[in-house]
């Protein structure tokens, strides 16, 4: 059963075509890594999956993307509901200028949950899920800016988890973090796989190797190769993939 299916997706920033005919399917409860040199369209593709690119003026796409069988670009699709189901974690930790508690509660509140008990429960569970509870339990009502970068990023993941999405998109979630925080996030992703379908962009080959089931290699807006991570890293079929993985360019 495929969770996410994209077919012949083209995407344009104005005149510039950033994605060429991408067809890619993602299985439920797997981690899929998107790799490729800078500017090859990884973020663009990822942001198509929760329609984040809608915010950018003067863009258009063709082709279809379905999640759970529903065309997310159908004109009857409710974008807010889609984004509720498809959570996103950004490259730079971006907590709101609110308390730790309110950061996680935000998604619940905007989705109409007002019951204090439910909110508190979900906030705590989410923070526990990202293994942040011990570190923040005494300062839930302090500003999120008081946390370290790694803690902030885990808080942002908790914030995304609180609204119980089924897909989690992560755009280089560890690129701003130190090795210890990075490994914590990686462990977390490994845990989350049981409940979520995860698509992650990364520049770190080892990371892709460690955490992902499948890997997609993008190059100049095209999907060059997509296979089991093991296969991509041990016997890639395309020369470009091999060159990139072995560090000959990119």
């Amino acid at each position: 059963m495929h969770k996410i299916v994209s077919q012949n997706v083209n995407f344009y920033y104005g005149e510039f075509q950033a994605l060429h005919d991408i067809s890619l399917s993602v299985k439920e409860n797997t981690v899929t890594a998107l790799i490729g040199p800078s500017g090859c369209g990884k973020s663009t593709y990822l942001r198509l999956l929760n329609r984040m690119n809608d915010l950018i003026d003067n863009t258009h796409m063709s082709g279809t993307i379905t999640i759970d069988g529903n065309d997310i670009y159908d004109k009857h699709t409710n974008v807010d509901d889609l984004r509720k189901n498809v959570g996103m974690v950004f490259q730079k930790p971006n907590p709101f200028p609110k308390t730790i508690f309110e950061n996680v509660a935000y998604g619940l509140r905007v989705n109409g949950i007002t019951d204090k008990k439910i909110i508190e429960e979900r906030v705590i569970t989410s923070i526990e899920q990202v293994a942040l509870w011990e570190e923040v339990k005494d300062k839930l009502h302090k500003s999120a800016f008081e946390l370290s970068g790694g803690q902030q990023q885990r808080l942002c993941i908790a914030r995304a988890l609180a609204i119980q999405p089924s897909v989690l998109l992560m755009d280089e979630p560890t690129s701003a973090l130190d090795p210890i925080s990075t490994s914590k996030v990686e462990e977390l992703i490994y845990e989350l796989k049981k409940q979520y379908t995860i698509v992650i962009v990364t520049h770190n080959m080892q990371q892709a190797g460690r955490i992902s089931d499948n890997t997609a290699f993008f190059y100049m807006g095209e999907l060059i190769e997509y296979d089991k991570t093991k296969t991509i890293f041990t016997k890639p079929t395309k020369k470009q993939t091999e060159d990139y993985i072995t560090g000959r360019f990119g």
Binding site: L55, K84, V110, A160
Partner: peptide, 27 residues
Amino acid sequence: TPRAMKEASLALGASQWQTIYKVVVPY
């Protein structure tokens, strides 16, 4: 208002209006 702030809000399923009055105006 940092774009990251607005995107964070929208990515959590907040509508444009919710983002305006919960993020943009306070910010």
